[in-house]
Design a protein around this nucleic acid. Structure first.
Length: 758
DNA sequence: GGTCGTATATTTTTT
DNA sequence: ATATACGACC
């Protein structure tokens, strides 16, 4: 019990409160995780069975870390606590209980891409105008409905919603919703929202199941409670209705997921649902300096919709918050990068002490470039994660279809991959045939001759034989996930296809695939995983968030770049909050669609409170957007900072633009790893002759731009004159002579769109 | 059915 | 700037 000694009064009270509903309002940096950890440990020490504790966190990573910390306090018993995200915990429960709802235990989980693809197909099948029925809009409406527990039947029955959709000129919305659900169900698939929605249905319609879990979980705890939606809230409420031991932890000031259905009212109105609720406020900030806390308070005090709170700190005063003005996004990048470089040297900090936080993922580019230039190591959290990459999703598609042959989206992805001569028309026909005859897709595929004339059916038969052999491995031979995946990668031909692709991207994709196989291997080898089946692996994979990505600890000393959303729950010695421009932050989109400046302000608050020692905020006066330079205004949020703790950074000395013209000497370098990225094959060069041979597949406009005598220039990086250009149409090759040396950068930018053929 | 070339729209945040 | 959609053509 000695760990109680290190806690302050409210923290200790929270830890020691065992029976009855408890709400902990935890200000930023107030030791929330610590309280949650100790409280759980305390429960177990008081004799609560770890299996009877349900702890819901926001990311899998948070759960993992918490488990680790509890383990150091109470040891091995921590392994048995039910801990994870809402999505992963209830996916697990649905595996067991889903049969009650007509799903089998190996149901697929559709990610957002799958959902969108299905909606796109439905819009097409119904002959609706996809300019009016935008996929994102439709998906949003469906998602919102599910999060508010409005099923398709209720949706179509609601005159209010029908009126809304009529006014929005999307009267077929209800029908689409219905079809979407029917198709997901036929595919034995649930989307992200279904994992919560169907859990609610399960608990509503099957009281014996609800009862079982109500008695199983003696204590229910919810972390980041401010970001739960109605669907999640109802699940926890139902689960804790018997024992009434519900403990929620959160900070209304940090509620930043309204766009995903999170309802700040859950926390603001929590008292209404529990008359005997005990509320404890943690208001002492242990993380940040006085200056940072003061500025954060000055920001959040402008919001009306919040619980009263008085966050304070007894930490040192600290440096003032610095505002950095840059002329462009590229200059912003350079200024921040050199600020990091200098600070690291002068103050003996490591790269991992720094974080750059931005509003949108697209902003990372200028920082990446500038950091690379200074040889500063960095890592980017978010963006396109490993499991989103095409080659990975392709293999996962095969694996998904092997486990669940009704999975329509997996089917569409892999049926013609590698090419089997099966086109979109055939695929659509199969899908529609299955839907119309109300039979699983697999029935059509495996009996293709009954449904379709001979044309194209050879390829389909080959495909169905392939899948049958995979099925055999899983269902009869009971092979584990790795054995199956390894075989599938080879037998499908995907591995070979990538192996034969000798371009740099091809190589990277091949390596990614190998890495996926390694990940599966380590899943199988991990003694903590009792169930090594493919189905279980797939489930764990589809619920990974981008905060969960593995990082090799040996390689950790890097500057972190990420969106403010992904920074939730983290802290850094130094924080650079960048891109403080009106319309970007606060985001124009957000203000238009949700009319919610307060949520943006909370996001600002979250960003500011990530900093421990020093906070620097920057904005640019111009920024590239859609390839064009746009003028920008400083954000209104800059005026909301307490002026007593803010200073302008001294203007950086006049800076000469870089315009080096280094001759290219390397053989074969690559452009950014964009899909259209190019590899340059360079012929041996002499000192004066910069000839490059490019095998390319380019648009006519590009060829024009590259015509002989044209200047090739890019922004500030320099230019070169093309002396001669030969474009051999048949071979799709261009030979280009440069009059003089051009910078490597210029070459890359000029050729980035050229795609390699050979 | 597949490939190529051009026109068009697109960007907020994420389980 | 780039991803997608569409029409022309093989």
């Amino acid at each position: 019990m000695d760990y109680l000694a290190g806690l302050n009064e409210p923290q200790r009270k929270a830890v020691e409160h065992i029976d009855g509903p408890l709400m902990i309002i935890a200000g930023a940096g107030s030791g929330k995780t610590r309280v949650l950890t100790y409280r759980t440990a305390h429960l177990i020490e008081k004799g609560v069975d770890p299996f009877a504790i349900l702890l819901l966190t926001f990311t899998n990573k948070a759960a993992g870390e918490m488990r680790h910390r509890i383990e150091t306090v109470i040891g091995n018993a921590a392994k048995n606590i039910w801990m994870g995200t809402f999505h992963s915990i209830f996916a697990k429960i649905l595996r067991f209980e889903g049969t009650r709802l007509g799903y089998t235990s190996n149901f697929s989980i559709y990610d957002t891409d799958d959902s969108k693809s299905l909606i796109r197909a439905l819009i097409k099948e119904k002959n609706l105008d996809d300019k009016v029925y935008k996929v994102n809009l439709v998906l949003n409406r469906i998602s919102n409905a599910k999060n508010r527990l409005i099923g398709p039947a209720q949706y179509t029955g609601s005159s209010i919603l029908a009126e809304e959709d009529r006014l929005a000129r999307i009267p077929a919305m209800g029908e689409l919703y219905q079809l979407y659900c029917a198709r997901c169900f036929a595919a034995n698939a649930m989307d992200f929202d279904d994992l919560l929605f169907q859990t609610n249905i399960l608990f509503r319609d099957h009281l014996d199941v609800l009862n079982k879990y109500q008695h199983k979980f003696k204590h229910v705890m919810v972390d980041e409670f401010q970001d739960t939606n109605v669907s999640q809230y109802l699940i926890t409420k139902k689960l804790s209705a018997v024992n009434r031991n519900i403990c929620v932890v959160g900070d209304d000031a940090q509620s930043i997921y309204a766009f995903r259905g999170a309802d700040i009212q859950n926390i603001l109105n929590f008292e209404r649902d529990y008359s005997d609720l005990v509320t404890i406020k943690l208001e002492e900030n242990y993380r940040s300096t006085k200056a940072i806390v003061a500025v954060a308070n000055s920001i959040i005090s402008r919001n009306k919709n919040q619980l009263k709170k008085d966050v304070f700190t007894s930490n040192e005063d600290g440096d003032d918050i610095e505002i950095i003005r840059a002329s462009s996004d590229n200059e912003e990048g350079r200024m921040i990068a050199s600020a990091i470089f200098e600070a690291a040297q002068k103050e003996n900090l490591t790269w991992s002490d720094f974080a750059i936080l931005y509003r949108t993922n697209a902003q990372s580019r200028s920082f990446e470039e500038a950091l690379r230039r200074l040889n500063i190591k960095y890592r980017i959290i978010g963006g396109v994660s490993f499991y989103q990459r095409k080659e990975i999703k392709d293999v996962l598609g095969y694996l998904r279809f092997t486990v669940n042959q009704n999975d329509e989206e997996a089917f569409k992805r892999i049926i013609n991959l590698p090419k089997r001569g099966i086109g979109d028309t055939t695929i659509a026909k199969i899908v529609v045939t299955a839907a119309e005859n109300n039979v699983p897709i697999w029935d059509v595929v495996s009996n293709i001759s009954q449904f379709q004339a001979a044309r194209g059916s050879a390829g389909i038969e080959a495909f169905s034989d392939l899948i049958k052999s995979f099925k055999l491995m899983v269902e009869v031979e009971q092979k584990d996930a790795y054995e199956v995946a390894n075989h599938v990668a080879k037998a499908s031909g995907l591995l070979r296809e990538l192996y034969e692709d000798k371009t740099v991207e091809g190589l990277a994709r091949y390596q990614n695939l190998q890495e996926l196989l390694n990940a599966i291997k380590s899943f199988v080898d991990n003694p903590e995983n009792e169930d090594k089946s493919l189905a279980t692996f797939l489930q764990s994979v589809s619920l990974l968030t981008n905060a969960d990505a593995d990082e090799d600890p040996a390689d950790r000393d890097k500057v972190t770049l990420m969106t403010i959303h992904s920074a939730k729950g983290l802290e850094f010695n130094r924080v650079f909050l960048v891109g403080l421009e009106e319309d970007l932050f606060p985001s124009q989109m957000m203000l238009q669609s949700q009319q919610d400046l307060e949520e943006e302000r909370r996001l600002f608050y979250v960003a500011v409170t990530r900093a421990e020692k020093k906070l620097q905020i920057s904005y640019a006066e111009s920024r590239y957007q859609f390839g064009r330079l746009k003028a920008c205004e400083p954000s209104r949020f800059l005026n909301e900072l307490d002026p007593n703790f803010v200073k302008m950074a001294k203007p950086a000395g006049a800076r000469k633009e870089v315009s080096s013209f280094r001759p290219v000497q390397k053989t074969g370098f690559t452009a950014k790893p964009a899909p259209s990225a190019a590899q340059l094959i360079q012929k041996p060069t002499t000192n004066t002759n910069y000839q490059h041979v490019v095998s390319a597949n380019f648009q006519a406009t590009d060829a024009l731009a590259l015509a002989a005598g044209q200047k090739v220039e890019h922004a500030k990086f320099g230019f070169g004159l093309i002396k001669r250009i030969e474009v051999n149409g048949a071979e799709r090759k261009a030979v280009i002579d440069f009059e003089k040396g051009v910078g490597e950068k210029t070459l890359l930018l000029s050729f980035a769109k050229l795609m390699i053929v050979t």
